[in-house]
Design a protein around this nucleic acid. Structure first.
Lengths: 348, 348
DNA sequence: CTGTTAGCGCGTTCAG
DNA sequence: CTGAACGCGCTAACAG
């Protein structure tokens, strides 16, 4: 249909000519770090640029300078509120520093994560932020770390979100502690017979939350038998099916803890569909405090993580632009976590 | 703390030397389009690249070729399920074509949208996809279009999502028709006294849905008085407050239509918090069919849009890789929309 | 089929 | 403070 002439964008050269100055002067007026250019010239260049609709070619600039303005963010699933909230934080913080963020999704597939990291290196991003739930599979783990190490060796910076990934920078989420506190709070509310919809065993975040929860229960002398731990997908449907399996097992439980909110939402729906009133018949709790859990019925008890802040922190951590107050130690202080009791876990 | 040597990444030159061939040969073996290189050499190059951990510098490649592998996606709010679902589709389709997508958020601010487009042009993206709800403000609209036009003049491609933005490619969402059908369906269910939580008047999508809904009601001889139309933010809280205002007005309504699901979720919560059982006292309907509306109580009646497909289509439309069957006409066929009746609107 | 050379658009020396 | 020349890493003509 439409095959326009497609003239190429105005180049710095064009601007220089239009303004009647040299390339160097034009460059200095538009992007120069050391500001030492006659105001007259400067104006003429700016106007010429304006007139020609010139925009700095970031790629060429990157090639010349040897450094990019790109941030690469890896998430398991961008449609998952957990990740999209983190992404929002990353993008927000990045735009403050005039950084562009590119997002890639890994789908929780270790091989794909590795491939993606490799592909992304081609962009020579300033920083790479890995928010995808990492697995504990040794094989890929080793390759991933080596890939990331050489990325750092060549001037990149990587930041992980969630569990410690020394020697890489990490925004630590206190998965274990948060889950422990939740367990304690629930025990104090009078719950005694727990089950956990735990997500895949290889996902570290899931594992940590499960362990923390179990520890918390132990503090109250409550044990969590293995048959009360159901592994399933880290998704809403995973939670739904997990709850179905739990019910089918005939176990008598008074509280179901899903290791993340998305799953917990599935649990609530599964209970309801099975004719059990969530919060009355069986309590339900999740983890993350994604926005929607306030709006389901009953509102979900959960462990709050300030997701957007986490994203922001990850970027700042990586770019070294920590404008938080006391980062004296340099050690990664975990993001504070907060237990939020809502209607899904009334006192028993 | 850690100040590593930071040697720069291996270059094609390094690889060529390591393999004992020329730059050109190395280039051809690694990225060449026409595959005319001795298999022996090819292997040696590949191995050398492997050994050195070489990755093509996409920027340099872009500068040399004069074309990028970048897709720029503009959304109003990436944490909003509507946009994150679309983003998922875009990213998915993009990765199939080995395209990298960078996401920028505009926050529904026309000025910021314009600035962002300008900034993004620096990346020389192959395509730019605008999914943010565009406003009808003439001033910025003109500038935006002119900016986009010159982007296309210089070889870029732009695709809009939602309302027609000729002469730019558009993935049309049938906002008006979907809303009309919904209205008809609701009227047939026995509802008579409607109110609409309409979002900001300047947002075109909101406006279209409002109008379509009103038309649908008119077909059944039902009118929608102005005082039953409440404008508020296009967010969950906007919906919540809109519902509060509605209740405060004392209007007697039996159904509230929020022009998007996120707002409708807020409406449901507001009703409940006001002691009104959503779906029993007052019916509620939304638009979009975001994932979570299945899980709130009662499940929300809405108009389904296949959000991920929309994202995919947008990319394909822009890259010209339509692998859909019949795009004979070339005219933008709207994405089909479907009315989904759920528990929030029982028959009256 | 391979190697040489000249750009791509820009930043940055280095003289003037 | 300005301009000319070179280099960034890579591709694309051009010869050999």
């Amino acid at each position: 249909m439409s095959a326009p002439a497609s003239k190429s964008p105005a180049t710095l050269h064009d601007v220089a000519r239009e303004a009647g100055v040299s390339l160097a002067t034009a460059s200095r007026s538009l992007n120069g770090s050391a500001r030492k250019v006659n105001e007259d010239y400067r104006q003429r260049v700016l106007e010429a640029a304006q007139r020609l609709g010139y925009t700095t070619n970031l790629f060429a600039q990157a090639v010349a300078k040897g450094s990019t303005t790109t941030v690469a963010l890896l998430v398991a699933d961008i449609a998952d509120p957990y990740f999209s909230s983190i992404a929002a934080g990353v993008i927000d913080a990045a735009s403050e520093e005039r950084l562009v963020v590119t997002i890639a999704v890994t789908g929780r597939d270790a091989q794909r994560e590795l491939d993606t990291v490799r592909a992304l290196r081609g962009q020579r991003p300033r920083v790479m932020i890995l928010a995808g739930s990492r697995t504990t599979g040794a094989a890929f783990e080793v390759q991933l770390r080596s890939e990331l190490s050489s990325f750092e060796d060549t001037g990149g910076k990587v930041a992980f979100i969630s569990q410690d990934a020394a020697p890489f920078a990490t925004v630590l989420l206190d998965n274990r502690g948060g889950a422990r506190n939740l367990a304690v709070a629930l025990a104090e509310l009078g719950y005694r017979d727990f089950a956990v919809i735990a997500g895949p065993a290889e996902i570290r975040t899931a594992q940590e939350r499960l362990e923390g929860f179990s520890e918390g229960l132990a503090e109250h002398g409550i044990s969590l038998p293995a048959e009360r731990i159901i592994h399933s997908d880290f998704t809403r449907d995973g939670g739904y099916r997990g709850a179905q399996d739990l019910l089918a097992s005939g176990a008598r439980v008074d509280l179901v803890f899903a290791v993340n909110d998305v799953m917990a939402v599935g649990v609530v729906s599964a209970l309801r569909d099975a004719g059990i009133a969530p919060g009355e018949g069986i309590g339900v709790a999740g983890f993350d405090d994604i926005p929607t859990v306030r709006d389901i019925t009953p509102a979900l008890t959960t462990v709050r993580i300030p997701l957007e802040d986490v994203g922001r922190r990850a970027l700042q951590l990586a770019t070294g632009s920590a404008h938080g107050a006391s980062d004296a130690g340099g050690g990664p202080e975990p993001i504070p976590t907060e237990t939020i009791i809502r209607g899904s876990t009334p006192r028993r």
